[in-house]
């Protein structure tokens, strides 16, 4: 049993892990693009004038938020083929990540939309703007910028959950590290490196979010 850090081994596996990390980033970006878009859709559906629409959207969001992402990944990957929809592991993984985090993003959007003072809606009605134009030109441009930090937090959260895709054998960072480790019986280096990788990006993201928040505060702080 080895206790110390093996630098040669570290250098050997770094390129392999680097390759795998690209897949992690791809899953993150595609997953979040889906989450951000679908989240807005969910948020708008929850504001619908039709009670059944409102109710279904709310139930779906609550259901997805209340159950583990891992099971949702399994569901998309193993169950969907029974309905004739066979997804490859990476696609199933991205869909699951996107769907799961869309429900968190929906809450963020909802809070942001709620924060728009009623006077803005009333002013839009007084100017005879259609609901669509009101949303597009008045509400969304005001509501979204203050939400960027909160959305950024969920981007990071989603990023940190990509290792779950290893459960359906997507060759992202964690899965690659596990394979490397089980081949060499050296677990310390690959798993620690994966941890450092996530820590590195999370800390950068946290710093960026703080900067963004400060900038938004100076820009939007006194607007309303």
């Amino acid at each position: 049993m080895q206790l110390e850090w093996d630098w040669n081994y570290t250098l050997d596996i770094l390129p392999v892990l680097g390759q795998a990390s690209l897949l992690t980033l791809k899953a993150t970006l595609l997953g979040f693009a889906l989450a951000a878009t679908l989240g807005l859709v969910f948020a708008l559906l929850r504001m619908s004038r039709l009670a059944p629409v409102r109710w279904s959207a709310t139930s779906l969001v609550e259901f997805i938020r209340s159950t583990p992402l891992l099971i949702q990944i399994f569901f998309l990957y193993y169950v969907m083929p029974e309905f004739g929809l066979t997804l490859d592991a990476m696609t199933a993984g991205i869909l699951a990540l996107g769907l799961h985090y869309a429900c968190y993003c929906a809450e963020v959007y909802r809070a942001g939309l709620d924060n728009i003072p009623k006077g803005q809606w009333e002013a839009a009605i007084a100017l005879n703007l259609s609901p669509y134009i009101t949303f597009r030109d008045i509400i969304i441009p005001q509501a979204i910028p203050p939400l960027v930090p909160a959305l950024g937090n969920y981007l990071v959260a989603l990023f940190k959950e990509t290792p779950l895709l290893s459960a359906i054998a997507v060759l992202e960072l964690m899965q690659t590290a596990k394979i490397l480790a089980s081949e060499s019986f050296q677990y310390t280096e690959p798993i620690t490196l994966v941890g450092l990788y996530f820590l590195f990006f999370s800390l950068i993201a946290a710093a960026l979010t703080r900067q963004l928040e400060a900038w938004l505060n100076t820009r939007h702080g006194g607007a309303r």
Partner: peptide, 13 residues
């Protein structure tokens, strides 16, 4: 800053 799964594997392996 790191994943729950990474933490779990780290403690385990």
């Amino acid at each position: 800053g790191t994943s729950a799964l990474v933490q779990l594997f780290w403690l385990f392996f």
